[in-house]
Design a protein around this nucleic acid. Sequence first.
DNA 1: GCAAATTAATGATTTATTCAAG
DNA 2: CTTGAATAAATCATTAATTTGC
Lengths: 127, 127
Amino acid sequence: MTRPTRWSPTPEQIMFLEEMYRKGVRNPNATQIQSITAHLSSFGKIEGKNVFYWFQNHKARDRQKLKKKLLAQMNQQQILSQYPIDAHSSTTTTNSNNTNTNATLFHCPTDQYQIFPVTSTGIHQEV
Amino acid sequence: MTRPTRWSPTPEQIMFLEEMYRKGVRNPNATQIQSITAHLSSFGKIEGKNVFYWFQNHKARDRQKLKKKLLAQMNQQQILSQYPIDAHSSTTTTNSNNTNTNATLFHCPTDQYQIFPVTSTGIHQEV
DNA sequence: GCAAATTAATGATTTATTCAAG
DNA sequence: CTTGAATAAATCATTAATTTGC
């Protein structure tokens, strides 16, 4: 039996939806959903509710990703702690004096892009 | 004056960076970058920004590669038409072709955020 | 074999997004 | 709506690979 299978978007449909999303569409109203559905139906079977749910899910998962990223970054700290700073320069270093380890953090070419703002208490990078 | 030459990583440095990447490091924060830089400085001259750029580029180009693969999978369907372009339909005297005509609704490459013709009913679109 | 010429990789910059705080 | 922080995308620029003619 052709079970009532759930919608699975074609690559073209995904591409278009993502483009809409990128351009700012988050909660399309009925009119917008109609338009989008009409357009996307040329690439495959689709209903308005599919479009509605897609934006709901996409927005939610975007936020999920963001939060996941925060946790991932925390965990990276542990990975890196395996490699202590130490910098025992006894090895074959051509640059035994690491000038920028502490104070003069590398400033990017233009101060506009201040990657690592240094505060008196240290580095603060909020994400 | 030797012109400002760009950093070119040693094999050891590359190996270490790639190992970090494999372990999940993607966007190291300032502390992590300091740590990595300190460690890698024993293999050759290196600055924090080099590490920063390396991860930025490596991640981006990793993604490029994956995207390219996926795109290759999608047999060249009319994917490239992100927008239902009017498809230079004027070339033929008759414009009655295609079923994609509803597309014209979305032809809006210029107006970034006013994607849809607004109807009288108020659109609430989060921005 | 070897450089000059050409191409491919990749380091470094700039520009556009994103979310969300104010 | 505006803005800050972060970063992804796109681009520029230089180095490394490689091709080529000798």
